[in-house]
Simulated scan of single mutants.
Amino acid sequence: MSEKTYRVGQWQITRIPEIDLYFDPAGLIPEWDESVLGEEAAPIIEPTRENGGSRLKAPVHSWLVRSESCRFLVDTGVGNGRQRTFAPFANLQTDYFDRLRAEGLNPNELDFVLCTHMHTDHVGWNTRADGGKWVPTFPNARYVWGRVDGAVARHPRFHQGPTAGVFEDSVEPIIEAGLFDEIEPGPFAPIDGVTFHSTPGHSPGHLAISLQSRGEEAFFGGDVLHHQVQVLRPEWNSAFCEDAEPARASRLWALGHAADSNALYFGVHLGGSSVGRVKRMGDRFTWIHE
Rank of each mutant, 00 (worst) to 15 (best):
F86T: 14
G9S: 02
E46K: 13
R49F: 04
V148Q: 04
C115S: 10
Q83P: 03
A247V: 10
F188S: 02
R84D: 08
S273G: 05
L110Q: 01
T5S: 15
W11G: 00
H257Y: 13
G9C: 08
T120W: 13
D95A: 14
F266E: 01
G222M: 03
V113Q: 07
G81S: 10
S35D: 15
G186H: 06
S198D: 11
F196P: 00
F266Y: 02
G161L: 06
E245H: 15
P162M: 03
S273R: 05
N140T: 11
D243N: 13
V74A: 02
L207F: 05
S210I: 04
F23V: 05
D223P: 01
Q10V: 14
H117N: 11
E217D: 07
F219C: 03
D243Q: 12
G222C: 04
I288H: 12
L252G: 00
H117P: 02
T5N: 08
A247P: 03
E46F: 12
R55C: 02
L92Y: 05
D181Y: 09
E290C: 14
E3H: 07
A153Q: 06
V194W: 09
P190K: 08
W145A: 10
L211Y: 04
P185F: 08
I44M: 10
G276Q: 01
S35P: 07
A141W: 05
H227S: 06
N106D: 14
A239H: 08
E184F: 09
V229G: 01
S274G: 08
F180C: 15
I175G: 01
T137I: 07
G27C: 10
S210E: 04
A129L: 15
L64V: 10
L28W: 01
G53W: 04
E290S: 14
V231G: 01
F23G: 00
S170M: 11
C70N: 09
R82M: 09
N106S: 10
L179H: 07
F86Q: 04
R101T: 12
D260N: 13
E103S: 09
G131Y: 06
R66H: 05
Q93D: 15
G186D: 09
W253C: 07
V8S: 00
A151K: 12
L110Y: 00
F196G: 00
Q83S: 14
I209S: 00
G131M: 08
G165S: 03
D98R: 12
G205Q: 06
P246Q: 02
L252A: 04
N262M: 11
R7N: 08
L211H: 05
C241I: 10
H122C: 11
D192I: 09
F97M: 07
A259Y: 12
S35E: 13
P187Q: 10
P204A: 15
G38A: 05
K57A: 02
W63T: 02
I13T: 04
L21P: 00
F138G: 00
L270Y: 03
S2K: 13
R82A: 06
G52I: 06
Y265H: 10
W11D: 00
V60I: 15
C241T: 14
R84A: 12
V152K: 07
